[in-house]
């Protein structure tokens, strides 16, 4: 089991929306270890796409902004239809995650053969997370355990490694941020095997400024509820 061979067979999907300040360095960091990085530019108005491309990423461009969930699904579709990648890593473009964590998670999924490995900030270290966010994430975690029946230690963490089987099971319908809950519920409904891996998250001034407002949790709840009530599409 050669770790670098596993990294060569892995596709890293980086959903990007107006991240020109960070995406170049994030992609450069990823490209030092991963051969295939695909950046899904979700209708950015800045130079994100060009920067990502210059840094060595394949760029898929949404002509209009759809949301992070839609961008991830585009990356998943690309992985399934246009590559023979054995694993897919999801990695945020704002520099909150460490490439070394992603590598460790790919090694873990190779060793254990599970379908999906989820990053957990609660097993790892979180730097500079605001207090209100911590309270909110604890509530979100209880809610997500209740809904899915899966005993996760963290929820809505953007760093994940999926096997090809898991990618095929996703088919995300939530365009916005509720996709993270959707991924968790797919784990339950498709009976995917999973592991968690500690990750270090760096809440920098940049990521705090760019990131979601806490009130967005209400939107996520609404999206999930309306999807649940609605007729199967």
């Amino acid at each position: 089991m050669n770790p670098s061979a596993a990294l060569d067979r892995t596709l890293v999907v980086v959903p990007t929306y107006n991240e020109a300040a960070m995406v170049g360095s994030v992609v450069t960091g990823l490209r030092e270890v991963f051969t295939h990085v695909v950046c899904v530019d979700d209708g950015s108005h800045d130079d994100s796409a060009a920067d990502a491309r210059a840094a060595g990423a394949t760029v898929l461009r949404h002509p209009v902004n759809l949301g992070q969930g839609a961008a991830l699904q585009t990356g998943f579709d690309y992985a399934l239809r246009h590559t023979d990648a054995s694993h897919v890593v999801t990695f945020d473009a704002d520099g909150q995650y460490l490439v070394s964590d992603a590598v460790a998670m790919v090694e873990l999924i190779e060793e254990t053969g599970v379908d999906i490995v989820l990053g957990s900030r609660n097993l790892g270290r979180t730097e500079g997370q605001p207090f209100a966010r911590r309270v909110l994430m604890a509530a979100a975690l209880r809610f997500s355990r209740r809904m899915t029946g899966i005993e996760l230690t963290d929820t809505h963490n953007g760093l994940r490694v999926l096997s090809r089987t898991a990618v095929a099971a996703m088919n995300l319908r939530q365009r916005g941020m509720a996709h993270a809950s959707e991924i968790e519920s797919r784990i339950a409904s498709a009976a995917l095997t999973w592991r968690e891996h500690p990750v270090t998250m760096c809440y920098s001034d940049y990521s705090r400024g760019k990131g979601q407002s806490n009130l967005n949790a209400l939107n996520i709840l609404f999206d999930l509820a309306s999807d649940r009530i609605g007729a199967p599409a």
Partner: peptide
């Protein structure tokens, strides 16, 4: 919106740009 996402995704996949 769901249909829009499908169209946008199809276009993005068709126009994939390899690394510079």
């Amino acid at each position: 919106e769901r249909r829009l996402a499908q169209v946008v995704r199809a276009q993005a996949l068709a126009g994939a740009k390899p690394p510079a």
